[in-house]
Design a protein around this nucleic acid. Structure first.
Lengths: 342, 342
DNA sequence: GTGAAAGCGCTAACAG
DNA sequence: CTGTTAGCGCTTTCAC
C-alpha cells in the first residue's frame, strides 16, 4: 500500500506531527531531527496524500479555469491556447494545480457547475467573460468562491475582474489608419454581445468621432472571431468600398485579407488592414499584419496573481486590473515603422 | 460554514449513510425517503466535499494531462489545443475533472512530478509522448499510477499507449504524390527524436522504396512542427529542386508553401504539397492543402476511455490502440478529387 | 521542540 | 431498507 505520515514517523522515530512539520517547512523542529526525517522521506519516496491534506487544511492548492460555451469555438482562436499557457505557467510557479473546464454545451454547464462550486476541489476560479446569456458566470458570482473574471463581465457586478484596455486599443488602431490618410475605414467586430467586441467597436467609433468624421454604419460588419467570419464580413463590406479595415482580431483580419485579395484588391495600396492581438501568425502571413499587441501571457499571469490574492486575503474589496496595449506597425497598413511615432 | 452530510441528514431526519446513498445513487433507499432527502439537498444547495469524498473512497475522479517540455512550444501547433479539447470533452462526459500540466522547463518538471505522482490527486494520467530525453515519462511509468501515453513512446516499454498509424499515413501521402507523377518528392520532418517524426519519415521512405525509387537524402529536411521551421526547411530544399513536398504537419506545409511562393514557384504546377493533420487552417489558405486527416478529437476521446479502463480494471495487460488516417485531396497537389480513388 | 488527540467530511462494511 | 461504527491520511491546537 501507499506510504503514510505514520510510516515515515515510525521509521524516523518521531511522531506524526513532527513529520508533518518537516514536510510543511514549519520551524520548531530541531535541525538534526529535520535531517533524519528528510532522509527517510527521500529514501522512501514519500509524497503526502493530496486529498487528506486538502480535507484537513481546507486548501486544495488547485485553481479552476472555466471557458464558457460562448467561447467554445474556442480553440479556433489561438488567443485561448496562449492565455491558457500563461495561466498554467503562473499556476506552476505558485505551486497551484490547474483544472480545466471547457464548457461545450448546456449539459456540460450543468455538469460543471457542481464540480467547480463544490467545496474541497478548488481554491478559486478563473472564468472567461462570455456573452450575454451566459448563466454560469452569474451563478458562480452568487456562490462565494474566490473568482476572477477574465475580461470585463457583461453584467455589471461587484466581482473581481481583469481586462485589457480595449477601447483605447481600438481607438489607437483606428486613429493610426486615419493618420495614414484612409478615408473609408471599416471595422469587423467580434462576437456581438461580448464586452471585447463592444469595447473595441466603441474605440473605433470614438476615434472617428473625435476627428469629426461620421460613422458610416455600412462600414461596420459583424464577425465572431473566426477566420471564416472575417472572410465573409469582408465580402459584405466590399460593396461599401472601404480603403481600410480594423478587424477586432488578427484571425479575422487574416480572413478579411483573404477575401480582399480574392476580390482583386491590393494590400495595402487599395486597402489597409489592422488587426488585434499580435499573435505569431500576424508576422507569418504574406503581408505582415499591423495590429494591437496585447500581453496575453502576462494577462494570464496577472489573473492568477489576482486570484491568489483573493484566495489568501479574502474577497473584499473586489480587485480590478486593466492592462495596456501597444500598436505594432507592419506592412498591412502601408505605413513604414517610422510612421508609428506620428 | 459549509453544509455537510450531517446537516442534510439532520434536516431530513435520517442518518448520514442514507444521505450518502442518495447522493451516490445507491439502491436500497425507500423511494419516499430518497425524495425527502433530495428535496433537502436541493433546498440547501448542498454539494459533497470533494476532498473528503476522495479521501474516503480513494477515487478523485480527476485525470491529469501532462504535456512535456519538448512539446511545449506547444500551443504553436493547433494540434494540441484540439487534442486538449477532445480530452476535456471526454472527461466531462464521464464526470472526470481534467488537470492540465504544461511543463515549460526543467524546474516545472521537478515541481510537477510530485504533484502528479502523489496519491489522492489524480486517478490517472495522460502524457504526451515526447522526444528522447524526456525523463518525466519514464519516472511516471516507474510509479504505478494508471497511465496512457499519447503517441508511441520513444522508449519501448510495457506501458499503455494510443497512437495513429503514422507510417501508413505518410506512406499514403507519398504514394499519392508518386501517383500524380511527381519525380522529386521531398519531405519535411517533424522534430527529430519524436516517434511521430520517425514514423512519418519511415512511411515516406517506404512508399518510395516500394516503387523502386532511391531515397535522395538531399530531399529530406528537418523541421520542428512550427510554421517557421517549414519555411526554412523549404528554403533549404529549394537547391535540390523538388517538384513535390510531403510535410509532416499542416502548419509546416503552410510555411513551406510560403517559401515556395516567395521563390517564384507555382503551386501545384511547379511543386505540389501534402500536409498532415487536416486542421481547419488547411482549407483556409489560398491554395487548399491536400493532407492526411487524423481524428484528433476522437484520439483524445479514445485516450480517456483507455485510461478509464485502466483506472477501473487494473493496469495489466497494457492497452494498445492505433487509429487510422485518411487522405484528403485538395488543390495543393494538383489532383482533382476523382484522383483520390486512383 | 515534540507528542497526543481531536477532528476535516465522507464512504463502506456490518449489524439489525 | 437504515443506522452505527470505523476509518481514509493529514493538520492543528494544546499540553508537556
Amino acid at each position: 500500500m501507499e506510504l503514510t505520515l505514520d510510516d515515515i514517523a515510525r521509521q524516523a522515530g518521531v511522531s506524526r506531527s513532527t513529520v508533518s512539520r518537516v514536510v510543511n517547512g514549519h520551524p520548531n523542529v530541531r535541525e538534526h531531527v529535520r535531517q533524519r526525517v528528510l532522509k527517510v522521506i527521500e529514501n522512501t519516496g514519500y509524497h503526502p496524500n493530496a486529498a487528506a491534506r486538502t480535507l484537513a487544511s481546507q486548501r486544495s492548492w488547485m485553481l479552476g479555469l472555466v471557458l464558457p460555451r460562448s467561447v467554445s469555438s474556442f480553440f479556433a482562436d489561438p488567443y485561448f491556447p496562449r492565455l491558457t499557457q500563461g495561466i498554467a505557467q503562473a499556476c506552476n510557479q505558485n505551486n497551484y494545480t490547474l483544472a480545466l473546464f471547457l464548457v461545450g454545451s448546456k449539459e456540460d454547464e450543468e455538469k460543471i457547475f457542481p464540480r467547480v462550486s463544490r467545496k474541497g476541489l478548488l481554491d478559486g476560479i478563473l472564468i472567461q467573460s462570455g456573452q450575454t446569456g451566459d448563466q454560469l458566470i452569474d451563478r458562480l458570482v452568487a456562490s462565494s468562491i474566490p473568482l476572477v473574471i477574465l475580461g470585463r463581465p457583461v453584467q455589471e457586478c461587484d466581482a473581481s475582474y481583469i481586462d485589457v484596455d480595449n477601447v483605447t486599443g481600438a481607438y489607437n488602431a483606428t486613429s493610426h489608419l486615419i493618420r495614414q490618410g484612409r478615408q473609408r475605414i471599416a471595422t469587423i467586430t467580434g462576437a456581438p454581445g461580448s464586452t471585447v467586441s463592444i469595447d473595441r467597436l466603441e474605440g473605433y467609433r470614438k476615434a472617428l468621432s473625435e476627428r469629426g468624421r461620421d460613422v458610416d454604419e455600412s462600414l461596420i460588419a459583424a464577425g465572431d472571431f473566426t477566420e471564416a467570419s472575417g472572410y465573409y464580413a469582408m465580402q459584405k463590406l466590399l460593396d461599401a468600398r472601404p480603403d481600410a479595415v480594423f478587424a477586432a482580431s488578427d484571425i479575422m483580419a487574416i480572413g478579411a485579407m483573404r477575401a480582399a485579395r480574392e476580390a482583386g484588391l491590393k494590400i495595402p495600396d487599395d486597402i489597409a488592414f489592422v488587426g488585434y492581438d499580435d499573435l505569431p501568425i500576424a508576422t507569418m502571413v504574406d503581408i505582415p499584419l499591423t495590429t494591437i499587441r496585447q500581453p496575453i501571457q502576462r494577462f494570464g499571469v496577472m489573473a492568477v496573481e489576482v486570484l491568489m490574492d483573493l484566495v489568501e486575503n479574502g474577497l473584499t474589496p473586489p480587485r480590478r486590473m486593466i492592462l495596456d496595449t501597444e500598436l505594432v506597425v507592419r506592412a498591412s497598413c502601408g505605413a513604414s515603422t517610422a510612421d508609428r511615432l506620428g
